[in-house]
């Protein structure tokens, strides 16, 4: 593995989707992953909303970090500042969607406020700092992480729709079986690990 600046953005994109998937490798953003994966349609809606917010907030936070936080030596405040930026940008994204893309707002609208507190959104902003990504790499990292999260929740929802009609042992229904499925999915995703070596 070379220095971070040497990694091709496309590699980062693919790695974020497959080898270091936000949910299945890092186990971030689990709450909505478990609770909103009953139905494929809703899960996909949430996945799209997460992707959009991830992309926008990582880019904003990259500029905030490199032009405000780092020059002023405020690294110890980055958790709070990233969260504030995420909260504000989600508000604005919601208003903008409602105004210009009402169709999309109908589909994503109810999820957007929920996403403000999704830990994977904060997670990728922090990863981007730790891994010292450039602006371009950050764009691809944000996009890839979002797509990866979307892929994972859609896959889980599809599986859950299939098993919804099956009889499960008492106590394993709902979240129980969902955690087991998530575990197996995470194992399956390990299979991608050999293809790309990015932390």
């Amino acid at each position: 593995m070379g220095t971070p600046a040497a990694i091709h953005p496309i590699v980062i994109l693919l790695a974020a989707i497959f080898t270091s998937n936000m949910v299945l490798a890092n186990f971030l953003g689990m709450c909505p992953f478990i609770s909103v994966s009953n139905e494929y349609k809703t899960a996909s809606g949430l996945g799209k909303a997460v992707s959009l917010v991830m992309l926008v907030t990582t880019i904003l936070n990259w500029f905030l970090y490199h032009y405000v936080i780092a020059p002023l030596g405020l690294e110890y405040l980055r958790f709070i500042l990233f969260i504030v930026v995420i909260a504000a940008s989600v508000q604005i994204i919601e208003m903008a969607l409602d105004r210009y893309l009402p169709e999309l707002h109908v589909k994503l609208g109810i999820f957007l406020p929920l996403i403000t507190v999704n830990c994977s959104i904060l997670g990728i902003s922090l990863f981007m700092v730790i891994r010292d990504y450039t602006a371009l790499q950050t764009v691809f990292f944000g996009l890839g992480s979002g797509l990866g999260w979307w892929l994972a929740i859609c896959a889980l929802a599809a599986i859950r729709e299939k098993i919804a009609r099956n009889k499960l042992p008492i106590g394993l229904g709902g979240p129980g079986i969902t955690f087991i499925i998530t575990g197996i999915m995470a194992l399956a995703f390990i299979g991608f690990a050999g293809t790309l070596m990015i932390q």
Partner: peptide, 8 residues
């Protein structure tokens, strides 16, 4: 700390 959080 207080100033930067408040300002941002």
């Amino acid at each position: 700390t207080v100033l930067s959080i408040s300002l941002i």
